[in-house]
């Protein structure tokens, strides 16, 4: 397994350790949050080989791929985080690391053009505070600004 680009072959790790606990307790990566602990809320979202998965219902021993946590996407998510602040996309902030990690994966693919499809794509990330309009508009704004910055660089 690789964690945020660094090779990590956990030796002697207990089979009953969830990826979430491994990251938080043994790697000190506390950005990944636990809320429901049963796959329903998305707070614990990390990327494995670029695909968002829930670390609370994944055993650490079975992970072979590249794991990316919120800490690993700090630079990549800078614009998205700025737009979250700009658009009021969080309040208590507990769901936010999961939302950002999910958002990073979506921005890599390109957001679905249709707002309903975008809402479906983030439906695994529950936010009890904000409603989702702020999150959707932050994602849209981030995509636009990143595209603008890219075309600026190229011209």
């Amino acid at each position: 397994m690789k964690i945020n680009g660094t090779h990590d072959d956990p030796v002697g790790i207990r089979a009953d350790t969830r990826l979430l606990d491994y990251l938080r307790d043994q790697q000190g990566l506390r950005g990944t949050k636990e809320a429901c602990g049963r796959g329903e809320c998305g707070a614990c979202t990390v990327l494995i080989d670029g695909r968002p998965v829930l670390s609370c219902i994944t055993l650490a021993v079975r992970v072979d791929g590249d794991v990316e946590t919120i800490e690993g996407v700090t630079a990549e998510s800078a614009e998205l985080r700025r737009q979250f602040a700009e658009h009021g996309a969080f309040q208590c902030g507990f769901c936010t690391p999961g939302q950002i990690v999910r958002g990073v994966a979506l921005l890599r693919q390109g957001l679905p053009a249709d707002d309903n499809a975008l809402r479906a794509a983030i439906s695994g990330n529950v936010c009890r505070c904000t409603g989702y309009s702020g999150i959707v508009s932050a994602l849209r704004a981030a995509e636009e600004n990143i595209a603008m910055a890219d075309s600026g660089e190229n011209s």
Binding site: G39, G42, T45, R51, P52, V53, L54, I57, T58, R102, A120, A121, S123, G124
Partner: peptide, 9 residues
């Protein structure tokens, strides 16, 4: 089935 994170697994 579920949401994207669930379907990936």
């Amino acid at each position: 089935i579920g949401h994207p994170q669930i379907r990936n697994r």
